[in-house]
Design a protein around this nucleic acid. Structure first.
Lengths: 341, 341
DNA sequence: CTGAAAGCGCTTACAG
DNA sequence: CTGAAAGCGCTTACAG
């Protein structure tokens, strides 16, 4: 093994192979118009010196970064960590770097979403995961030249991958209705989560389905919570304190559902005997706790988004505007037919 | 709002402010030897043009990337997603970029760990999360000039943040012993997870504690599993099939514990009445399912690692070799005293 | 097929 | 305090 005092440059390889730097660049990138003999010598010299093009130099010169960025509001959350894993699954083998834009505060999000330029020089494409983009900011993204796809949320004017949130919620509610439940509660998100986006859509799906089933919408059965286990527990505490509590509850995430179930048990009741609970996600632990839920596939969402971006960067024509990944009812043991009165 | 056909460069700012490019660079970075008046004009021109230094150009010129990398074996797993969130929590406000090196296959890991050069040119510092580094590879990392810190695992010769895995396991086992349990099972990881690292250490802690308590180590009570809910369920299925099953089980992760509990219930038994189960992690959902466990703080691990790196990059002397973050027994409702015979 | 040269957009000595 | 120039390590027309 050769000792190297410093990292080899293209110039070093050129000297060793007896060619020009330009030829090194062409040979290594597999461009045409290089004889096999020259290419061979370059490859040999490069591996001899363990040469690797300096990324910033080639990015500066070519304008391509071979990097995809992903903007996320909450990195540690189940859905986003799965999306991220899916993205990496396709980017890593493709030789693309993955850059994280964490945007945990509203200011971070506003700054990020309002400044396409800052992003444009660092990445070739951007995945917006669970980010809202105000309509007035969309044009700058479209015209930025950056490939952008939204995950987990449709954004008018940008391409996206998401589930049919309203439909998934309706599926959950329909399951409860089919079991004979008439008083069905909702544990949703606080209003500041926005009028659009998954929480709002799921609430809408809940309302639509109840109406479709000719069950009235009862304001007191809908409660807002922070999207955590604690939030779910508190929400259910509240529902149980009602004069006439619901006999079944749809929680818009599995985490909420787990908290809700915990609340029911702490009150000395049983799930599903006294009250049925259904979630939405099919979280890693959902099967382990027997949670009935509607399954989504966040890893696949990430893969789809990354593949979409890579295809476009390869020059393929942009695909569909909105792809909606499927969703599926998974019945386990936290729901059951309403007991006869 | 000015229309811009292209992204502004330092030269544009220089022209507008009536100074040289060098002065723009100095003024914007807050270097000394710039009059307040000039700095003011530059700042104004820069904001006028919405100028932002091109990252690759400044990286190429300065040799600093203002980027930290993080290498992870499994992005979607609870522990790693929390570490990542912690890292981002400190890097984002500091203005550092975060680059992901996903290394989900053993080959990926070997390649990454065996090639400090490839990493060195992209980042100023690297966080190795849950990565094993063979002793013979350590020197190249030390001499690479890159700041490196390991998270979740001690690596001889590199700095690290981790918990005392053996100690945490011993804490869990001691809790079971204190409840009067004598036949205590272990659900651990498969051997290929390595002779070092958390799984091996936790198994060691289990063995050490049993010996300390003068309880013999029974080979048949230790079972290996994949580190998932399914793995935990299958492992417990096996333990329950034994002629004399354990009365309590320590699962080395909460996910395993949840799967184990599910198995017990599917067999028609009750946790903790018939069998006690304790995990290790304090996963987000652990409180919701009443799991007794040993808590660790992965978000904090990430924060500590990132802060360590930033401090060093700021020129502060390297800190301790190994920092061990604390751990804590959290008793909930999946463990209880051994019933009298 | 290959090389010499210009250029990507910054930073950093070096003068003044 | 400020500017002119060189240089970071590549890529990309342009010649030949």
């Amino acid at each position: 093994m050769t000792t190297r005092d410093r990292i080899a440059t293209a110039a070093d390889v050129a000297t060793l192979a007896g060619v020009s730097v330009a030829t090194v660049s062409r040979a290594l990138r597999g461009l045409p118009n290089v004889t096999e003999a020259t290419r061979g010598r370059v490859l040999l010299a490069a591996s001899e010196l363990r040469y690797r093009p300096h990324p910033h130099a080639s990015r500066l010169a070519s304008g391509k970064t071979r990097t995809i960025g992903i903007a996320l509001p909450m990195l540690g959350q189940w859905y986003f960590s799965k999306v991220l894993a899916g993205v990496d699954l396709v980017l890593s083998p493709a030789g693309y770097d993955l850059l994280i834009f964490g945007a945990s505060t509203p200011e971070d999000r506003r700054r990020l979403v309002g400044d396409a330029d800052a992003v444009r020089s660092r990445v070739d494409g951007l995945i917006l995961a669970g980010m809202q983009v105000p309509p007035e900011e969309v044009p700058q993204w479209v015209s930025s030249g950056l490939r952008v796809v939204s995950v987990g949320q449709e954004i008018k004017g940008l391409r996206s991958i998401s589930i049919d949130d309203a439909g998934a919620a309706a599926l959950a509610v329909r399951h409860l209705v089919n079991l004979g439940h008439l008083r069905i509660g909702l544990i949703g998100a606080r209003a500041q989560e926005g009028a659009h986006g998954p929480p709002a859509e799921r609430r809408r799906g809940y309302a639509v389905e109840l109406r479709r089933q000719r069950l009235g919408l009862q304001r007191e059965l809908q409660v807002e919570a922070e999207l955590t286990v604690d939030g779910g527990r508190e929400a259910m505490d509240h529902l149980l304190s009602l004069p006439a509590p619901p006999t079944a509850v749809f929680a818009i995430t599995d985490e909420l559902a787990v908290g809700a179930i915990d609340s029911v048990r702490r009150h000395g009741f049983d799930v599903p005997r006294h009250i049925s609970v259904i979630g939405l996600d099919d979280h890693d632990l959902a099967a382990g706790v027997g949670l009935t839920t509607v399954r989504q596939h966040p890893v696949r969402h990430g893969q789809l988004a990354a593949n979409m971006l890579l295809a476009e960067l390869d020059g393929e024509p942009a695909s569909d505007q909105h792809v909606r990944d499927e969703t599926q009812l998974v019945v386990r043991s936290t729901t059951r037919p309403l007991a006869d009165p």
